[in-house]
């Protein structure tokens, strides 16, 4: 799905870094939070709740837990509290995490 984002990445001095989001290559300036990078990348939901509802980053300050994604194999990572890094492997968080880590997908 490709939903246009209502957010824009401001021009930054930082070097661009690249990471993948569910396999798709995303570029963002260094120093950007992963949540901001995902919001400007797409208007699509970045996670699904336990009941299958779509969610994206909301509070941007570590409180609401709506920006959860899997980062380099670690589930339920708060994207707003994580800076983008080159080569990061990011996946949508689908439902609750399992006890032993990893994800449904």
């Amino acid at each position: 799905m490709n939903i246009a984002s209502r957010f824009q990445t401001p021009p930054e001095d930082g070097e661009p870094v690249q990471f993948t989001f569910d396999g798709e290559l995303v570029t963002a300036p260094i120093g950007t939070s992963l949540a901001a990078a995902l919001l400007s990348h797409s208007g699509d939901a970045s996670r699904e709740t336990a009941t299958g509802a779509g969610r994206s980053a909301f509070c941007m300050m570590g409180v609401c837990f709506d920006c959860l994604v899997e980062v380099d194999g670690t589930p339920n990572t708060q994207a707003c509290m994580t800076l983008v890094r080159d080569g990061m492997v990011v996946k949508r968080q689908i439902g609750l995490r399992g006890l032993t880590g990893g994800n449904d997908v």
């Binding site: 336990a50 339920n76 609750l96 995490r97 399992g98 006890l99 032993t100």
Partner: peptide, 8 residues
């Protein structure tokens, strides 16, 4: 803790 899909 965060919510888990698995049951203890």
């Amino acid at each position: 803790t965060e919510k888990l899909r698995d049951r203890l």
